[in-house]
């Protein structure tokens, strides 16, 4: 699934948070976005995922213009996002969090629930099996039946990824997946992302943790003050003088 952003823009009053950003995530691509705080990365994500409406520009998914679609409709088309601050369903267990993410459940309609209980049971069993696989894949077994609100920050990040996976996505937008995650878990998370990418799932990742991201992605875009100031393979981009000035403060 390819994602094309063309001249996306969003201003808050006089402040231009995202300024004519254009970039492409090819089918099955693994693309990163870096930039200092306030560069407009998270705003860009909200524009792409439908949580904010852009002032100008377009979002195209597999050739279809989705700029005006609601957030849940975009997710249904196979593009799901996670959040920088995990938004777990705190009072549901890890297992229930993942179950809730399974699409197309007839047990979520009142008609299905009361008129087709047998069908609902069969679907629940199928979903439970998929959830068990995802829990095993993410090594969340020890906390599978713990309320998600009680997980550590790193485990919540894993859960966010797991929930996104349950929707059968073709493209996952990760908002700072490594923030607040201990180094061991960063490696594990990177390995999961690589494994999923090898299965054909595309990723667009916003990240602050530069080394972790540069080891992971094929292409990188650098944002500063709402604009993309450099794009390309990580090594080339990081050598760029403007990038060093903006992102690394010229000191590194």
């Amino acid at each position: 699934m390819s994602l094309v952003l063309a001249d996306l823009a969003k201003s808050w009053g006089g402040f231009c948070a995202v300024d004519a950003v254009s970039l492409t995530v090819p089918k099955g691509g693994l693309v990163g976005i870096i930039g200092p705080n306030g560069a407009g990365k998270s705003t860009l994500f909200s524009l792409v995922s439908g949580f904010l409406a852009p002032d100008a520009g377009s979002v195209t998914l597999d050739g279809a213009d989705i700029t005006r679609l609601a957030a849940h409709e975009r997710a249904r088309r196979g593009m799901v996002r996670t959040f920088q601050v995990p938004r777990e369903f705190a009072h549901l267990t890890v297992r229930e969090n993942l179950m809730a993410a399974v699409p197309g459940q007839s047990g979520e309609t009142l008609r299905g629930l009361f008129l087709r209980p047998a069908m609902v049971r069969v679907e629940e069993q199928a979903a439970a099996a998929r959830v068990a696989d995802t829990i095993a894949f993410l090594r969340l077994d020890p906390v599978a039946d713990t309320p998600a609100g009680k997980l550590s920050g790193g485990q919540k990040k894993l859960l966010e990824l797991g929930r996104a996976l349950m929707t059968d996505p073709a493209l996952i937008l990760l908002d700072e997946p490594f923030a607040g995650v201990n180094p061991v878990l960063v490696e594990a998370l990177s390995a999961h992302i690589r494994a999923l990418n090898a299965r054909g799932i595309g990723f667009l990742i916003i990240e602050h943790d530069l080394p972790a991201l540069t080891r992971l992605v094929g292409d990188i875009h650098v944002m500063d003050r709402g604009r993309v100031i450099a794009s390309g393979p990580p090594a080339a981009v990081l050598a760029d003088a403007a990038v060093r000035e903006a992102y690394l403060g010229g000191s590194a």
Partner: peptide, 13 residues
């Protein structure tokens, strides 16, 4: 009840 935005992000209205 726990997080409406996360529900939207998962493709449910």
């Amino acid at each position: 009840r726990d997080n409406e935005e996360a529900v939207r992000a998962l493709g449910k209205d």
